[in-house]
């Protein structure tokens, strides 16, 4: 079922602790996280969403894009977006407003959707640069660059191409969405930094998979050491 070499020494523990860091190994924990994050982004776009400026509905899905990169890291965050968009292409109505199907990839907003993948990657790459602890500065920078600039860099040209309106006019027209994006960026930063305090094992990213770091991010380990205050109601002991 897996293409990985059978002789991989990674089987010392079921987690990834001994895998080589150089290549992107997707193990069962990653599959679960990527799939759950794709579903998380889908739920953020469900009807009955959030009215931010009075009654103007904005999609919270770009918030999900920012969080995917900030939490899962560059590669896994980008893969989560690929998975989400693949589900959309397969015909699940998961885009905000119940849209889906291959049609959205030929419409005016197609570029933004592709930009979500690159955006999540850039958010993750900046937020987790240098495998250090998260900082406010790097998180803000990552979310603004990856979560807004990169997405528009992909979205605007495609929109101009599809609608055949020149790029400057297209950009002008899209300015109305920028305030909403800034609000989401602020929320994404606050959530990421809150999560680092309240639920540190959320951040199981590519770069923390060194030999020594594994036990701290093992899922069973974290669950047992009680790092999840408040939200674990109803979960039996483990």
């Amino acid at each position: 079922m897996t293409s990985e070499p059978a002789a991989a020494p990674a089987e010392i523990t079921p987690r990834r602790s001994a895998r080589p860091v150089s290549r992107l190994a997707i193990d069962a924990t990653d599959i679960a996280r990527i799939a759950v994050f794709a579903a998380f982004i889908a739920v953020l776009g469900l009807p009955g969403g959030f009215a931010v400026f009075g009654s103007v509905p904005i999609t919270a899905q770009t918030l999900g894009v920012m969080l995917a990169g900030a939490i899962l890291g560059a590669w896994r965050g980008a893969i989560a977006l690929v998975v989400f968009l693949a589900l959309v292409a397969l015909g699940l109505p998961l885009l905000a407003g119940g849209h889906g199907g291959a049609g959205v990839f030929v419409g005016p907003t197609a570029g933004y959707l592709v930009g979500w993948i690159a955006g999540a990657f850039v958010v993750g790459a900046i937020v987790h640069a240098g495998r250090r602890r998260l900082t406010w500065a790097r998180t803000i920078l990552g979310v603004l660059v990856g979560g807004i600039l990169v997405i528009y860099a992909f979205g605007l040209p495609v929109q101009a191409l599809v609608t055949r309106i020149p790029l400057p006019e297209t950009a002008l027209q899209s300015l109305v969405f920028v305030p909403g994006d800034l609000v989401k960026a602020v929320i994404a930063v606050v959530i990421t930094m809150t999560l680092q305090r309240a639920y540190p094992r959320a951040f199981r990213t590519d770069r923390f998979v060194g030999a020594g770091g594994a036990s701290a991010v093992q899922s069973t380990a974290g669950a047992a050491s009680g790092t999840a205050p408040g939200v674990s109601s109803g979960t039996p002991e483990r």
Binding site: I12, T13, P14, T220, A224, P236, R238
Partner: peptide
Amino acid sequence: GANGSGKSTFARLLGGLVA
């Protein structure tokens, strides 16, 4: 055993989910 007594860890150990 009580919550947090180690019985779940024991189970996971036997199944190879915890080393």
